[in-house]
Amino acid sequence: MNDDQPLEKIAISGPTLASIIQRFSSSEGDVDGLLFGHVTEPSSSNLHDDDHDSTQSNNSPSLVANITNFFCSNSLSSFYDSLGRLNNSILTHLLQDRQQQLIGWFVGRRKSPLRPSMREFSVSSSLFTLTTQPCVFLLLSSPVHDQLIHTHDYKAFQFMQKNGLFESKSIEVVNIGPAFRGHYGSFSPNSEFPWLAPSSGMEEDKGKRDRRVEGFEVGRLSKLMGSTASNYTSELEDLYSDMLGKLGDLARVVEKSSALVLEQGTFKLMKCKETSTRTDTML
């Protein structure tokens, strides 16, 4: 259960934020998705010898939420209903095999006020009970009226259960700089593909699906014309969703392999470092 501790700020890596904005701005309509990451407690620089002061700072440690990864659904209401109640089966599916922890969610809606809506509040409140860390809500929008210069507006909030409020938090965009290593070490550069197939398709027997997709000849498409068309339309729709399912599988494979590549890269880097340290000591 969440302990409702106030965050000092929310940190997000430049590429992750850029990637979320890119997903949103290239989508046809509004989008939502999940945010992953962790909470860190940066070592406080204002330590005092005074006992009274130190107890005070212990009571309210400055926490920073780090958003390191996200999942974009490419649509809206992907894991909740009209009232903002969570769809647990979809959410469980989205969260399975994740290395990172859920830290909140985001919504991108064009040309709308940059303040949380009725449903966004309900979803955040439901999600709060599910996460083990503070619940972050990232809202992306664009100005209601057309302007000469296009801007991407975004605002981050922390959902506070105790007073039922969204507290606006500052966002720190973390980019690579001269002293980036320590700062950037906690970020993971892999990001996932959007989820293509409907949820029911995921539990289905993969082999069965493959056979169905292979068995469809192009010649049969001609039957889409004429009186018997209605039967074939549904068949074609099934084929389409099966193909999406296959594409989804492919996306997962690509994600896994890219994660492996990353792991290997990190391993090699570490070996290099080790060797260089050894060389140093030999010298």
């Binding site: 046809e28 309509g29 509004d30 649509s75 809206l76 209401s77 009209s82 709308s112 006020p113 303040r115 949380p116 809506s117 009725m118 449903r119 966004e120």
Partner: peptide, 10 residues
């Protein structure tokens, strides 16, 4: 995009 979905209110 999804006219079947209920509206949200700000």
């Amino acid at each position: 995009q999804y006219p079947l979905v209920a509206p949200d209110v700000i």
